[in-house]
């Protein structure tokens, strides 16, 4: 790896800390406000970050650096207490023969794409919950089990969940896994960006473990800036696209690639419109039911029809 592509000092990952000058109390307050807004159905209407903390975190995945070693898969399983074998088992390259998605026991997996580098080596794509800016799963969940945390993490609360799996239908990336095999207490399983680690100042396990620094954790704003800088510094090395900046209304996992992203689509990075599907449904839903106007008008119409036709018959 040449020198200029290794992260510079100020690129160093920063664990999420509630914004500068933001006390713990103010942070809790912001969280409560966000929750209240969500309950009132007004939160984050356009999917461009309104209502989110400017310090929300993101991860940059530089596909030009990833070598498909699957260390991140092992670290992820280990950090999330998922069943996993020894690190050596992850040297097995045969898993790349089929396309994989995260499962209830593997919150992140690496796929091999069909795209190749100049030297003939394939591109690998690490996939996990993308932690959308305007997550359709959060919008879909009828009991608020899915939440977008101010730090950017999309969280799942099993104690609220009723198991309808509408979140899975809503996910534009199909990154949610379900414990179909648990009889009474099935849960949705997903990457939570190692929030149990980051809240103690540690890095997400995959980021910490990546031996080639393909992953970088930081504030989303910074991550996108770094991504753009890398493209600007090495236009020969990267295609001019920051995947996740706008895809599906934006995500917290940001990808850089040396080949067009269309070639990464089958490996798990679909081309998506720059608006979250949740914006569409919420616009429809709140449009139809705005101030209860339409239902009230219909009720009034039915009542008057009922009265009018009654008279007609009597005469």
């Amino acid at each position: 790896m040449n020198d200029s592509t290794t992260p510079s000092r100020n690129d160093q990952p920063v664990p999420f800390v509630p914004g500068p000058g933001m006390s713990r109390r103010a942070f809790m307050g912001a969280a409560a406000t966000l929750a209240a807004l969500t309950v009132n159905g007004k939160a984050i209407a356009s999917g461009h970050g309104e209502g989110l903390s400017p310090d929300r975190m993101a991860v940059l995945v530089d596909l030009t650096r990833c070598v498909g070693c699957r260390r991140c898969e092992w670290a992820c399983a280990d950090a999330n207490e998922n069943p996993h074998g020894a690190l050596e088992h992850y040297d097995d390259q045969s898993v790349f023969r089929s396309r994989r998605a995260p499962s209830d026991r593997e919150f992140c997996v690496v796929n091999r794409s069909s795209a190749c580098r100049d030297d003939g080596q394939p591109y690998f794509v690490k996939v996990q919950c993308m932690h959308c800016e305007k997550p359709p799963c959060v919008s879909a969940c009828l009991v608020g089990a899915m939440q977008k945390d101010p730090s950017g993490v999309v969280t799942y609360d099993a104690s609220r969940c009723i198991g309808c799996r509408y979140c899975m239908v809503a996910c534009p990336f199909d990154r949610l896994a379900y414990e179909f095999d648990r009889r009474l207490l099935p849960r949705v399983r997903k990457c939570e960006m190692c929030r149990h680690r980051t809240q103690h100042g540690r890095l997400p396990a995959c980021v910490e473990t990546c031996p080639v620094e393909a992953l970088q954790y930081g504030r989303r704003g910074d991550i996108i800036r770094i991504a753009r800088e890398r493209i600007a510094a090495h236009p020969d090395r990267y295609v001019d696209h920051v995947y996740g900046e706008t895809e599906g209304g934006g995500t917290s996992w940001i990808y850089l690639s040396g080949r067009p992203f269309e070639e990464m689509s089958a490996a798990g990075l679909p081309a998506l419109a720059p608006v979250s599907p949740a914006v569409r449904t919420e616009t429809i839903q709140h449009g139809i039911f705005k101030w209860g106007a339409a239902p009230m008008a219909l009720a009034a119409l039915l009542a008057s029809l009922n009265k009018l036709t009654k008279k007609g018959e009597a005469s």
Partner: peptide, 18 residues
């Protein structure tokens, strides 16, 4: 999946009107 928690839908504290 969690049919026994179906009643959550009737709890206003659980409602998510989006």
């Amino acid at each position: 999946g969690r049919f026994w928690a179906m009643w959550h839908v009737m709890l206003p504290t659980m409602w998510q009107p989006n």
